[in-house]
């Protein structure tokens, strides 16, 4: 009988490496928006079912993150920011990441369907497909509009949360989708303006590289202007109310002001102050999205005390 030999692998994966495959920071946005979508829906959900549903929506989001890291391992090896990820660092093989991602995707969709309803499970499966196949495989490397359409994947979670409660789609859930969908381009492109990434070496067409920074600044402004009426208009649906309207008016005024500021700026001026304004706009965009969804949550909370709404 031969000895069981242990091949010395210097960088053996730890538990944390598999957690890193799930992109925990992206998951936090998924958890928050799915939670809001579930809570603002008119049908009450048992807290334990709600917890389970959000857990598996987040896990489904994590699965698409793992599939993304499997497919994009070649890009991640080239770019400085992503070199330390588990696959480029050699701690997890590409095959392991693929298996892990597919297994988690299957578990999360089945468990979501069992915990809530079949429609939500199928919706989650579609979201994972959209992010892993439509965005990662088809669009990311072929068009500078990649993040515009890819942003849809990040915008589905509140719709899934709503579907968990109601089993359907409605004007309100589409409004929440539209806010995140239209918010994604200004959010990412402002990041692209100051993160001088080596995207071009990696073969990813970023708008700043393909069409220049001037066009990117204009596109940020256009999307911000289109976003404002959608975000403010949501106040007049059944999930909105005066509190949300006040928050939306203030945040959108500031967001448009910031976008106009970015559009007017010269590249030299921006370089001189190390992109301070672009960075401010980027961080404000996070507050912008959080503020809208927190206000929707506040309206739902007020309704519980028979306040809120119109």
């Amino acid at each position: 009988m031969s000895d069981i030999s242990y091949l010395e692998r210097q960088n053996e994966a730890q538990f944390g490496d598999f957690v890193a495959l799930l992109k925990p920071r992206v998951m936090s946005l998924v958890v928050f928006t799915a939670f809001v979508g579930l809570v603002v829906a008119p049908v009450p959900v048992h807290p334990f079912v709600a917890f389970t549903a959000i857990l598996f929506i987040a896990l489904g989001g994590g699965a698409s993150g793992a599939l993304n890291m499997w497919y994009d391992a070649d890009i991640d090896r080239v770019m400085r920011r992503t070199k330390g990820r588990p696959i480029p660092a050699g701690r997890i093989t590409e095959g392991e990441a693929l298996g892990f991602g597919l297994a988690l995707a299957g578990i999360s969709c089945v468990m979501l369907a069992l915990a809530s309803n079949l429609f939500s499970g199928l919706f989650l499966a579609f979201t994972i497909f959209f992010y892993a196949v439509v965005y990662t495989m088809w669009l990311k490397r072929s068009t500078p509009q990649n993040i515009v359409i890819g942003g849809a994947a990040g915008a589905f979670p509140p719709m899934i949360g709503w579907a968990v409660a109601t089993g359907s789609i409605s004007l309100e859930s589409i409004a929440m989708f539209a806010i995140i969908f239209l918010w994604t381009p200004p959010h990412f492109w402002s990041l692209a303006l100051f993160m001088k990434e080596d995207y071009s070496n990696a073969g990813v067409p970023m708008l700043t590289v393909t069409h220049g920074r001037r066009v990117t600044r204009l596109q940020i402004l256009i999307y911000t202007l289109v976003l404002a009426p959608v975000a403010i208009g949501t106040a007049f649906t059944s999930i909105g109310g005066p509190v949300y309207l006040a928050v939306a008016l203030a945040l959108n005024a500031l967001f448009i002001k910031g976008a106009v500021g970015l559009w007017r700026r010269d590249e030299e001026v921006a370089l001189d102050d190390r992109y301070a304004r672009e960075k401010r706009f980027f961080y404000f965009s996070l507050l912008y999205l959080f503020g809208h969804f927190a206000a929707l949550l506040a309206e739902a909370g007020l309704k519980y005390f028979e306040l809120g709404g119109w």
């Binding site: 048992h46 334990f48 079912v49 389970t52 857990l55 069992l114 915990a115």
Partner: peptide, 13 residues
């Protein structure tokens, strides 16, 4: 534990 909890909740509701 999660599956057990879900079972209890589904039965109770």
């Amino acid at each position: 534990a999660l599956v057990f909890g879900l079972t209890i909740v589904k039965a109770k509701t």
